[in-house]
Design a binder for these strands. Structure first.
Length: 559
RNA sequence: UGGGGCGUAGCCAAGCGGUAAGGCAACGGGUUUUGAUCCCGUGAUGCGCAGGUUCGAAUCCUGCCGCCCCAGCCA
């Protein structure tokens, strides 16, 4: 199989179970409820469940936990399927729904009644809550707890037939109202809901609760290891109780791990939805959203997401991962894969006074500095160019080795130029730089070995292609927005900046879904929704590491 | 003040009685026509705290402290 030592405690358990012969093949499942979009936290679960079977030639089910009609929608199941596929995993023919098992689940429930360990309770929801007790006080038995098997069976069958209204009765497990574990104080198994289900229509008016449906679905599918997050840890005794009572052919084992929390983000579906409702973002796939759909639209590579969760590890400790880890995974992947192009985000006009008017030279530019096999492209060079406003400083510090009055800088893949004159408008704003170029310094010509400290990017003005470029930043200003009273107050007002950029011509044909590096700026990709040949729209995936920004920050500790 | 978990560097994380891996970040230095990439180097006499067992403890025992989860007919 594989000789690599297990990476985490779950793989350790699986390895041991394979070694001991307890299981010949591993079977896991990823069981989302289709009531929202998948987010970073789910990426961890998906990679774990599918990863573990990929490594051991096992099988993984994609099972929709659709036991609560009304909250679940078809839109979400399609989005979830797309997200799991995009991440690079395949469930083949193992796409299931908890609703596929409604009939078997019902039969199991009757069995529980026959065994005398389940009963129909006729208390109201409020009364049940009152009877449950508190964390420190035991609960009290329901007056309906000792109904006979026959009466329970009759009532339950009539519940199914639709003889009762919502909330009139509920099927409960008969365990222990005094258990210190609240989950064992006669948990509800079935509730009446006269509502159509997205898949079973009006076939049912009673629906199973999570604990029951999930445990038995695992058993029906022959799941060997049921991996879930920490908050279900004290549901495990209940999970095992169902298995003990019903003794299914397969006995799955539930193992819990801690969820992955990303700093400066929230993953609560309720809060994510609130952001959409408040128009803070444009939807579930807004590039600032921590949803898989949002990250995909932003341009994050699936390979980077997988690498990211791998670096985070699988443990039982609560974690809040720094953004830097995610960004590192993205940069590492894109640094290797993305071709390089030039684009100017905040243009400043440069006129080369000694360059012939109307002349256009084609400069050869490497598509990837470390991968010559990716070839070159031609860049038009002319008398009027755009450079980045940030690459010029009228009063520059010693360490600033870009363009300054009287200073020289290399234009990447072009010539070395010198700034001779700064042109300003009536308000003192710099509107143009008049420079001269050194004809002996053409890139690659070898006619000059002159060196200058700085190299900046540029785009020839006449051939420049205009584009809208969306610059994203973190959505929140605090590391753990979920800990803030009103998370809306922690929003970053500058999470999106839109600029009108000037691109080199080749960028007009940038294929969708393929990230590109704008040299010296970062990684970008075409927006899957708003981009068109007529109106180019790019999203910034992530900036490049910027040690100059760090130097500036240290120089002026304020702001 | 019931029950269940978790505490190793700023953030993650190995470690499974034999003397603290690795990654990210940070900080120094080198290469560089991207202040990118790449390459070198730097961090715990210390593993939540206090005792104990042992020749030897992050690993075993006891006690304490801190943080997270649980009182849906949600998942």
């Amino acid at each position: 199989m594989n000789d690599m030592p297990p990476r985490d405690f779950i793989r350790q358990i699986i390895h041991d179970d394979l070694q001991s012969g307890k299981h010949a093949t591993i079977v896991t499942r990823f069981p989302p409820e289709p009531n929202g979009y998948l987010h970073v936290g789910h990426v961890m679960s998906i990679c774990l469940n599918f990863g573990v079977t990929e490594e051991t030639s096992g099988k993984t089910f994609l099972r929709f936990d659709d036991t609560n009609p009304g909250k679940e929608r078809e839109e979400f199941v399609r989005a979830i399927e797309r997200d799991v596929h995009w991440l690079g995993f395949d469930w083949e023919d193992r796409l299931t729904h908890a609703s596929d098992y409604f009939e078997q689940l019902y039969a199991s429930a009757e069995r529980l009644i026959e065994l005398g360990v389940a009963y129909v309770d006729s208390l109201t929801a409020d009364e049940i809550r009152e009877h449950r007790g508190t964390l420190t006080e035991p609960g009290r038995n329901s007056p309906y707890r000792d109904r006979s098997v026959a009466e329970n069976l009759d009532l339950f069958r009539r519940m199914r037939k639709g003889d009762f209204a919502d909330g009139e009765h509920v099927l409960r497990a008969k365990i222990d109202m005094a258990s210190p574990n609240m989950n064992l104080r006669d948990p509800a198994l079935y509730r009446i809901r006269h509502i159509n289900h997205q898949r079973t229509g009006s076939d049912w008016c009673i629906y199973p609760m999570y604990d029951f449906a999930h445990t038995m679905s695992d058993a029906f599918e022959g799941i060997t290891h049921s991996l879930c997050t920490l908050e279900f840890e004290d549901h495990r005794p209940l999970y095992d109780w169902f298995l003990d009572q019903l003794e299914p052919a397969h006995r799955p084992r539930q193992i819990e791990f801690s969820r992955l929390n990303l700093a400066y983000t929230i993953t609560s579906k309720r809060k994510l939805n609130a952001l959409i409702e408040a128009d803070v973002v444009t939807g579930w796939d807004d590039p600032r959203m921590p949803t898989i759909a949002g990250m995909r639209r932003r341009g994050y590579p699936a390979a980077a997401m997988r690498d990211f969760v791998k670096r985070c590890g699988v443990t039982k400790k609560d974690k809040l991962i720094e953004m830097g880890v995610l960004e590192n995974s993205i940069r590492e992947e894109l640094g290797e894969q993305a071709q390089r192009r030039m684009a100017v985000l905040r243009p400043l006009k440069v006129v080369l006074t000694n360059y012939p008017e109307n002349q256009v030279e084609m400069m050869s530019a490497l598509n990837h500095p470390n991968r010559p096999e990716l070839g070159t492209r031609e860049l038009p060079f002319s008398r009027e160019l755009w450079i980045e406003q940030d690459d010029f400083m009228e009063e520059a510090p010693r360490k600033f080795f870009r363009l300054k009055p009287g200073g020289e800088v290399r234009l990447r893949f072009g010539y070395i130029i010198r700034c001779d004159e700064v042109v300003k408008d009536g308000d003192g704003q710099i509107i143009e730089l008049r420079c001269s170029y050194d004809p002996d310094t053409r890139s690659g010509s070898g006619t000059s070995d002159r060196k200058v400290k700085g190299t900046i990017h540029w785009v020839s003005a006449a051939q420049a292609v205009p584009a809208e470029v969306r610059l994203y930043d973190r959505l929140f200003t605090v590391p753990d927005p979920s800990a803030v009273e009103d998370f809306m107050t922690a929003l970053n007002p500058d999470s999106l900046q839109v600029v009108e950029a000037k691109l080199e011509p080749a960028l007009a044909e940038q294929p969708a879904g393929e990230a590109v590096q704008f040299e010296r700026l970062g990684y970008f990709s075409v927006d899957s929704e708003d981009h068109s040949i007529e109106a180019l729209v790019f999203n910034r995936i992530v900036t490049l590491r910027d040690s100059w920004a760090k130097i500036e920050r240290q120089a002026m500790p304020a702001s």
